[in-house]
Structure formats: structure tokens, C-alpha cells
């Protein structure tokens, strides 16, 4: 057996990767055999993994989905693809969480922020220099669709308050709170607990500076309600937010959301 673009195919003795390309992807002009670029006449052995690429051509959404199904297995990918998450705040946490969830092929994301990309954001937030001045919602949407064009995105540009949250987010599977402002962090958890009783929540508190990696933890406050962070490292002058540690917290949040989606941890449904 062979893997050709993540699909299982029959092995034939003596076949070359160029012949496989003629059969399965005739337009391919780059051949990868077990992770290394090779010429078209490279012989393929039983059990090899072949990737056939047509340079400068973007795979279709169906092709992208099939890569993800092959990577993650169909049962898991179906659950990911059927799930809707919301990310509130698209700064150092939110932009990184969104990237992780786009890459694994989440079905739908609601992305909320009212801010624009500023130069001071770029020490940690996943935007590009040429996006300075753009709304974060618009910049992140463009970046995420470059990572995975098969995801569905809804952007919310208004400045949120506690009373507006249920109207936007009551139907998502997991709400991921990535605000900077501690007042909105508290307001979001209060709203989830009192108004959004089927929505799982992954919040955040304490990830500034360059403290110990392992002080960042994911704490279950109650079933379906999780808070990530070290609980104390507040962003302030002299201890700012920096990409490495904010990234640790963001990926705790992303993995916790994934665990809820896949049923490894309790949600609230």
C-alpha cells in the first residue's frame, strides 16, 4: 500500500513517482517522497508516502478537507467541521487561537474585535506589518483564509458590552474569551453562567511577561467552564505581553476548546 496525497493506493512493483502522478494528479510538477523532494523517475517502494503538488495552484476546499480527514481521521474531523466557536478579542490570544482552529478545519468561527492593528501589537499578535491600520477582524479574516479557505467566518466589529453578548454568542458550541480588559473578562464569564447555559467557555487570566512556562495552566471552574493562565501575571508597564508566553496560553485555550468539541472534556450541552 502507498499513501498518495494522504489517500491509500495500491502499490505496484517498479512504479515511479512520476507514473503515480500521471495516474492521480497529472498536473503535478513537484514530487515529495517520504518528506523529500525527488525527480519524476524516483522509484517508489511499498509503504512509501507520496505527495504530488501543482505549484502555485491552491487546492480546492474539498481537497483541503480530504487532507484534514486523512490527518485527523474521519470521526474526529466530522466533529471539528460541525462545530462553531466564538473568539472574543483578537489580540495576542485571540489571533493565535484563531490560527490553530483554522488549521484544524473548524467549521465556523465568530470573530469579534473593534480595534485596528497597531505597531505595538506586532510583538505578539498574528498580523503582518502591511496590515497596520486595518481592522483586526478584517486582517485576521484575510490571514485565516490563507491558512484554510474551507472554514466559514463571521466577523463582529462592534464594541461589545455584557448585555450584547448573549445575542451574538448563545448558539456557539464553545466561547473563547481572549479580551485584554479584565472588566470584560469578568462580564463575559458572568454572562455565560447566567445567560448562555449551553455554551462551553474557555477564558483567560494571567499570561503577561516571561514567567515559568508551567505556571500557565487550564483550570476547570465547573463542568464546561475553564480558565487558562497563571491567575496572577497582569499586563502592566515592565511586564508586558509577549508572543512566547501569550502563545502558550492561547494554545491551552485552543486545545481546551478542541477537547470540548471532541467530547474529551465536558461541555455544557
Amino acid at each position: 500500500m502507498l499513501k498518495v496525497n494522504e489517500q491509500t493506493r495500491q502499490f505496484q512493483s517498479g512504479i515511479t513517482i512520476g507514473e503515480l502522478a500521471n495516474k492521480y494528479k497529472p498536473a503535478a510538477d513537484l514530487f515529495i517522497l517520504n518528506g523529500f523532494p525527488v525527480a519524476a523517475d524516483a522509484a517508489v517502494q511499498d509503504g512509501d508516502s507520496c505527495t504530488l503538488i501543482q505549484k502555485d495552484v491552491i487546492p480546492t476546499p474539498d481537497e483541503i478537507d480530504s487532507f484534514l480527514i486523512a490527518r485527523h481521521t474521519p470521526g474526529i474531523q466530522t466533529k471539528i467541521k460541525q462545530s462553531t466557536i466564538a473568539i472574543l478579542g483578537l489580540g495576542g490570544l485571540g489571533s493565535a487561537v484563531a490560527g490553530a482552529m483554522a488549521k484544524i478545519g473548524i467549521g465556523k468561527m465568530l470573530l469579534s474585535d473593534y480595534d485596528v492593528v497597531e505597531p505595538s501589537n506586532l510583538n505578539r499578535q498574528h498580523y503582518f506589518i502591511d496590515q497596520i491600520g486595518m481592522l483586526k477582524t478584517d486582517a485576521l479574516k484575510a490571514n485565516l483564509l490563507r491558512m484554510n479557505p474551507s472554514i466559514s467566518l463571521k466577523i463582529i466589529r462592534e464594541r461589545l458590552t455584557e448585555s450584547l453578548l448573549p445575542g451574538h454568542f448563545s448558539n456557539v458550541d464553545v466561547l473563547i474569551e481572549c479580551f485584554d480588559d479584565p472588566v470584560m473578562k469578568a462580564a463575559t464569564l458572568r454572562s455565560v453562567l447566567t445567560e448562555m447555559k449551553t455554551v462551553a467557555y474557555v477564558g483567560s487570566s494571567g499570561m503577561a511577561g516571561f514567567g515559568d512556562n508551567n505556571k500557565i495552566h487550564t483550570k476547570m471552574e465547573r463542568p464546561g467552564i475553564y480558565i487558562v493562565g497563571d491567575e496572577t501575571s497582569e499586563a502592566r508597564p515592565g511586564m508586558g505581553l509577549m508572543a512566547p508566553r501569550v502563545g502558550i496560553a492561547a494554545h491551552h485555550q485552543a486545545n481546551q476548546a478542541l477537547r470540548i468539541i471532541l467530547g474529551a472534556d465536558k461541555g455544557r450541552k
Partner: peptide, 8 residues
Amino acid sequence: IIRFVGGG
């Protein structure tokens, strides 16, 4: 009491 500190 669940306390939040700023940063995100």
C-alpha cells in the same frame, strides 16, 4: 470569587 487580571 473568580478573579481576572488584564492581558490577552
